[in-house]
């Protein structure tokens, strides 16, 4: 099984397409860091313009490495799923398109095992991509901008997390983001299992994510209680829950706290359920499929 996994990873990382995602993330992160290095103050001013007349805002202190990382993740984690789909959408359909899938199935290994190995390869790729993003967004930002308290702007609130209370939240958030991105990998893996060419699953995954993200962000009462709570895109933002710090009755934040851990865990369970449903469905369909190519 390990040999097969190595083989799958070798195939994945031999394709130039795989590195598009790494290059795209590096380029985006670098461009955002450069922009915030030069115009960080203006960006914070835009965010905090409604309180700028009342409070003296320490702009230079706010634009620290932790805040830059949060800004990058806020912008990127909506787009990274598209990059994840590049590999997982291709992993079965690409073989079918190239005519190597039938050959692969001649090996003395069950279809279920083969699918699990391919899915594991997708997961490993997704995790490496996320680690790459974490390295660039968090550690490079810390090196470039230093650290200080993190200010998180919500729709109706501004939260401040003490410097010493931030790093563990990033580790937790990246752990959550890994599960969220594996859902996307599982979705495109599922679509890949029912397709004969890789373009279809990649485009379909991207389209589904765009439509569901729009639905998740819309505030329409019809969808708020009927549809939104069940969309995985609603729960993919759960990583932010680790930065929603709780406060006491006087409005003072409580170190090490999360305002609604139960909601974050619920989102986590829903995402895991989606992974099981997509992967299980892919295996179920693949086991009953006539492989003709």
């Amino acid at each position: 099984m390990w040999n097969l996994l190595q083989f799958e990873l070798f195939k994945t990382f031999k394709k130039p397409r795989t590195y598009i995602a790494f290059a795209a993330i590096a380029a985006i992160v670098f461009l955002i860091q450069l922009a915030l290095l030069i115009n960080g103050k203006e960006y914070v001013q835009f965010i905090l313009s409604s309180v700028d007349e009342t409070l003296i805002i320490p702009y230079a202190k706010i634009t620290n490495g932790y805040w830059i990382c949060f800004a990058i993740l806020n912008l990127l984690l909506i787009h990274v799923p598209i990059l994840v789909a590049l590999v997982s959408g291709d992993i079965i359909a690409g073989e079918a398109n190239a005519g190597t899938l039938r050959l692969l199935l001649t090996k003395p290994i069950s279809r279920t095992k083969l699918m699990l190995i391919k899915f594991l390869a997708c997961v490993i790729y997704t995790l490496i991509l996320l680690i790459w993003m974490a390295f660039l967004a968090l550690f490079v930002s810390i090196i470039l901008f230093g650290t200080n308290d993190l200010v998180v702007a919500k729709e109706f609130e501004l939260l401040q997390i003490e410097k010493a209370d931030v790093l563990w939240r990033y580790f937790a958030a990246f752990g959550f983001a890994a599960i969220a991105l594996i859902v996307v990998a599982a979705l495109s893996f599922f679509l890949s299992s029912i397709s004969e060419n890789s373009i279809g699953p990649i485009v379909a995954t991207v389209s589904i994510i765009i439509v569901l993200t729009i639905l998740s962000e819309l505030r329409i009462p019809l969808y708020d209680k009927t549809l939104k709570p069940y969309l995985f895109t609603t729960h993919m933002l759960g990583w932010k829950g680790f930065f929603y710090i709780a406060s006491n009755a006087d409005g003072q934040t409580i170190r090490g706290s999360i305002s609604n851990l139960a909601a974050v865990l619920k989102s986590l369970y829903i995402l895991i359920a989606y992974i099981i449903i997509f992967t299980g469905s892919a295996i179920f369909i693949f086991n009953r499929k006539d492989i003709l190519t």
Partner: peptide
Amino acid sequence: TKDYKMPKGVTFDYDDAEVKKN
């Protein structure tokens, strides 16, 4: 103080129950 509000399209808030309560 003046009121504070950011467009949700900028913050991309995670919609936990706390958000609605707040």
